[in-house]
């Protein structure tokens, strides 16, 4: 619950900072006997559930481990191919752990760039003149709030739909960026932010906003 993550995107659409605060873990482990009553497929070089949702295992969930051995891509750590292994009756019963895939760093960079373009398209499609880009997106599971500074930096926060106090947090994040990234003479503008003081202050601000926002709602 609360604030899930923070993204900071530079003028060119590059991700210069990302922080995951509080992402709920969805993991389910279940023992199966042959034949497997769900359809799996390879997607993005990972084994995911294509059809046959059950017991909290949802379509789109990824195979995280089989019999306690972690999966890396489409194979297990010991080198066995997951799809092949699960097609052989001799390997059953088998305990498979499923979970919602976490975003990799590359995916986050890609999503940031995607948001950057969507932001610009939304203002072109505006039915009213002089519209800004996307300031908020609502879905059933999260809310995205974005503020773009006059200089073109975007601060994006992903929160629980019930969270409040977004504007205050965004303003605070901008101040922290101005203080601990820009005033650090060794930080180069437009580049990924790797400053410890920035990290700690940002985390504090996020925690604080989370507490305040939940009592208010």
């Amino acid at each position: 619950m609360g604030i899930y993550s923070v993204y900071i995107i530079n003028k060119a659409g590059g991700l210069i900072y990302q922080f995951d605060n509080n992402i709920p873990k969805t993991e389910v482990e279940k023992t199966f006997s042959y034949p497997l009553e769900m359809t799996l497929k390879i997607y993005d070089d990972k084994v995911v559930v294509a059809f046959g949702q059950r017991d909290g295992i949802k379509v789109g969930h990824r195979v995280l481990s089989v019999n306690g051995i972690n999966a890396t891509g489409r194979c297990l750590e010991d080198g066995r191919d997951i799809m092949e292994m699960l097609s052989q009756e001799a390997n059953y019963p088998v305990a498979i752990k499923f979970g919602r895939p976490r975003l990799s760093t590359n995916e986050k960079i890609m999503l940031a760039g995607m948001f950057h373009s969507l932001y610009a398209i939304a203002c072109q499609l505006s039915p009213m003149p002089q519209s800004s880009g996307i300031q908020g997106i609502e879905t059933d599971t999260f809310k995205l709030t974005c503020s773009q500074t006059l200089t073109g930096i975007k601060f994006v926060i992903i929160t629980d739909p019930k969270q409040t106090g977004h504007d205050l947090l965004l303003k605070k994040l901008y101040e922290i960026y101005a203080d601990y990234a820009l005033k650090n003479p060794f930080y180069s503008i437009e580049m990924p932010i790797r400053c410890e003081l920035f990290d700690t202050n940002l985390q504090q601000a996020v925690e604080m906003a989370e507490r305040l926002g939940l009592t208010a709602s």
Partner: peptide, 11 residues
């Protein structure tokens, strides 16, 4: 200047 502007706008 290119850094201070952000501080200025933020506050």
């Amino acid at each position: 200047g290119v850094r201070l502007i952000e501080d200025f706008l933020a506050r």
